[in-house]
């Protein structure tokens, strides 16, 4: 669509495209079988049985993997309920199921997500690169704002750290924790004209925490022979020191996301003079 197209035409086109999408979704959902009519065995993957490489290899060696007698859902292992604070050496060990999926079973996706955020921050900083000019605002923030942001920053920072350190126990984790910390730093920017975070520190922090994530993954590769595999004991469910490497990874993610989002805010807020010639 060209620049000189009237605004009404643009809006009508956009609305009709959205309507087509909505109609498509409506028709698609209408075809979807109702919840009660669904055979769970059909919808949930039947192969979600042999999850671990070790178990599968053992069963393969025993000739059981392809045998016809095996039921789709495992019945050979008796079902034991998981008790908070008592159950030990579970498959994953995180009390927060979302965390164990996000960091353990699909940890590679999370590494990718962290990289996406890193690249977005890097791209923003690259585009706004140049010699820093002094910021001049028309109004100085009031004393209340200045003192208030400084006090609340400590609390927000502590809360952010709490969120990512307890990622495997309570809702939350590295991404929310880092975002909370960055919003505290945004408060510091608003509280004082010409506030400057330590640029070198942010850069080093960001790099080191990102490298820590990859190094944890590589440790898995060299100790358990699989990239991003859990190489620590899973402990008792509900303890702070449990769930293996999830805690370590969430600390790395939290620090990285916090540093990155602060860097984005910083590079957006600072005025620069472009250096191309």
């Amino acid at each position: 669509m060209r620049n000189d197209t009237p605004a009404l035409v643009k809006r009508i086109t956009a609305l009709s495209l959205i309507t087509i999408l909505l109609i498509g979704f409506f028709l698609a959902f209408k075809e979807m079988p109702k919840g009660s009519a669904v055979n769970v065995n059909q919808r949930v993957s039947r192969l979600y049985v042999m999850k671990n490489v070790e178990t599968a290899t053992k069963m393969m060696e025993n000739g059981k993997f392809f045998a016809k007698g095996i039921k789709p859902l495992r019945t050979d292992v008796p079902y034991t309920p998981i008790t908070f604070g008592k159950s030990k050496n579970l498959e994953d060990g995180a009390a927060n199921v979302v965390t164990s999926i996000v960091v353990d079973y699909r940890g590679f996706d999370t590494l990718g997500e962290v990289t996406v955020l890193f690249l977005a921050a890097t791209g923003v900083a690259m585009l706004l690169f140049g010699k820093e000019k002094k910021r001049k605002n028309k109004t100085e923030p009031s004393l209340i704002m200045y003192v208030g942001t400084r006090i609340s920053f400590a609390i927000i920072f502590l809360f952010g750290i709490y969120i990512f350190v307890h990622g495997h126990l309570t809702p939350g984790g590295g991404f929310p924790g880092g975002a909370v910390i960055a919003s505290g730093i945004l408060g510091l920017f608003l509280g004082k004209n010409g506030y400057k975070p330590n640029h070198l520190g942010l850069k080093v922090f960001e790099s080191l925490s990102g490298m820590a994530f990859v190094i944890i993954g590589l440790t898995g590769l060299f100790s358990v022979h699989s990239f991003l595999a859990n190489f620590l004991p899973t402990g008792v469910i509900g303890d702070l020191y449990s769930a293996g490497f999830i805690g370590l990874i969430y600390i790395a993610i939290g620090m990285k996301v916090g540093a990155e989002l602060s860097a984005v805010v910083n590079s957006m807020i600072v005025d620069v003079e472009e250096e191309w010639s």
């Binding site: 979600y48 999850k51 079973y105 699909r106 996706d109 898995g220 991003l228």
Partner: peptide, 13 residues
């Protein structure tokens, strides 16, 4: 094939 995180394909990545 490369197995990520020691979980076999339909379950892990």
């Amino acid at each position: 094939m490369v197995v990520m995180g020691n979980w076999l394909p339909p379950f892990g990545e």
